[in-house]
Amino acid sequence: MAGFSSNQKLIKSRNIITLDVLKKQKQLIFMSAPLLVYIIIFAYAPMWGWIMSFQDYKPAKSFFDQQWVGFKHFEFLFTDPVFFNVLRNTICMSIINLVFSFVSAIGLALLLNEIKNIFFKRTVQIISYLPHFLSWIIVTGIVANVLSTQGIINEVLMKMGLLTEPVTWLSEEKYFWGIVGVSHVWKEVGWNTIIYLAAMSAIDPCLYEAANIDGANRYQKMWHITLPGIKSTFIILLIMNIGWLMNAGFEIQYLLGNGLVIDYSQTIDIFVLKYGIGMGRFSFATAAGVFKSVVSITLLLLANAVAKRVGEERII
């Protein structure tokens, strides 16, 4: 939003490259060229590694001595039941996280928006932003403690009479996705409200005054003014998140996952790590990584096209 108006005037001032210009901009080139080389080495050069997925890569051999195998690894991948599970886990956890985080953030933003006492509101905000800055290690440590057999969740549920004996939450397959979703909410809900609160504060106060005169109550104002006011923010964020569908996260699943829930905890990233670095099946793991990247890029371009179609800002 902010960057767009200034972009317009930049597009007009197209410059032509001549030797004279290059000489004049020598210093700017010195300041940027090494970093361009840097990013090409670190972000673009590794893409040559995708070739590995079409080979039986052996680290000891040189590039030209590698054996080419075509789509063998991809065929393996799609017939592998483990990979099917991994794909399902990734997509399902992504969707759960997406739904949980959107609903919780918008809900909390709506409620925060109703608080009139500035000091109280600030306090709630500052405290709820805090977990965003902690590493997943710390958060998973906290989650594991809270959910342990002696943890506070079991204790509260037992005192309330909802449970007769403690549940080993982290050893049950059926709870895993939910635990991941709720942990994300705990960590990020406050932080995620920031952008919605900003959108809400941009809503014209006249609208609320007019609604007051018409006798609208609080819920009607929320429904007819506040929610439509954050609609475009919501759509942009939703589209951006669809591009991230293949990234269900890695750390929390890796850290909380254990042998008992492995069929439900492994994501693509863990799969790549385990087969590639762990077992040395580099080509096979790269194939999984390539698949993930290709799907991600496709989703991103699709989302971008949809954004254009519905008249929202494009994301690329």
């Binding site: 590794p46 893409m47 590694g49 995708w50 590995m52 793991a285 790269t286 990247s293 890029i297």
Partner: peptide, 17 residues
């Protein structure tokens, strides 16, 4: 630079790099 926000080479190729 902006493209690097959206594209990643992946774990294994980066590891080899």
């Amino acid at each position: 630079f902006v493209l690097t926000m959206y594209f990643h080479a992946g774990l294994i190729p980066v590891f080899f790099l």
